[in-house]
């Protein structure tokens, strides 16, 4: 199989254009799609409390309930970012407060390394965020949603991150330079 650099660029462009005219139909502005993985015991409860207190926050966020932040597989995150979410948030209990003793400590290490790997490979910082929000921190939940939504809105749709043709052309030279004396032949 072969993918030419032109084909990649064209694909990226077309996706970017597609995102500029969203399904909402002509006239309706683009709205970010943000997925938040929330642990059942803390952040999901905090979100419920925000509701109970009738706090107001942007409607672009969708919560996905998981038992623990340690349940969130980086594969879920990457899939969401690839398939059309403009931002992904993973939330759990404060370190030390995990309902399952240590799940968020493992999540913390995993996500710290994975987030750096994603951003290293070109994800714009801010697209993927992790926050610890307890069940009583309805205000922090609201503030987090507001700030994440704001950041993602400013960044624009994920597809707009597709590199320009110039950047892609420049990347070819860099890639050649980075190749080792490998088996490529």
């Amino acid at each position: 199989m072969s993918v030419t650099s032109d084909a990649v660029a064209a694909e990226a462009r077309s996706r970017a254009e597609g995102a500029a005219s969203p399904e909402g139909g002509a006239g309706s502005p683009w709205q970010p799609k943000i997925l938040a993985f929330c642990c059942n015991w803390c952040t999901y409860a905090g979100a419920d409390l925000a509701g109970l207190n009738r706090m107001n926050y942007p409607a672009d966020i969708r919560l996905l309930r998981v038992p623990c932040s340690g349940r969130v597989n980086p594969q879920h995150v990457l899939r969401a970012l690839q398939d059309g979410c403009d931002g992904v948030l993973v939330c759990g209990c404060h370190p030390g407060d995990c309902h399952y003793v240590s799940g968020n400590y493992y999540a913390k290490r995993r996500m710290m390394v994975f987030k750096r790997l994603l951003e290293y490979s070109g994800l714009r910082p801010g697209r993927f965020q992790v926050r610890w929000i307890s069940g009583s921190e309805a205000g922090k939940f609201r503030d987090t949603v507001v700030s994440v939504t704001e950041q993602i809105s400013q960044m624009g749709p994920m597809a707009s991150d597709a590199p320009s043709l110039e950047a892609l052309a420049g990347a070819d030279a860099l890639l050649e330079a980075a190749r080792g004396a490998g088996d490529a032949r």
Binding site: A12, G122, D161, A171
Partner: peptide, 21 residues
């Protein structure tokens, strides 16, 4: 790693787009 870390996100994205493609 130093070289790629010093790039702008768009350049990095381009680099890995080309690589993974």
């Amino acid at each position: 790693v130093d070289r790629i870390e010093s790039m702008e996100p768009e350049q990095r994205r381009a680099f890995f787009d080309r690589m993974f493609s």
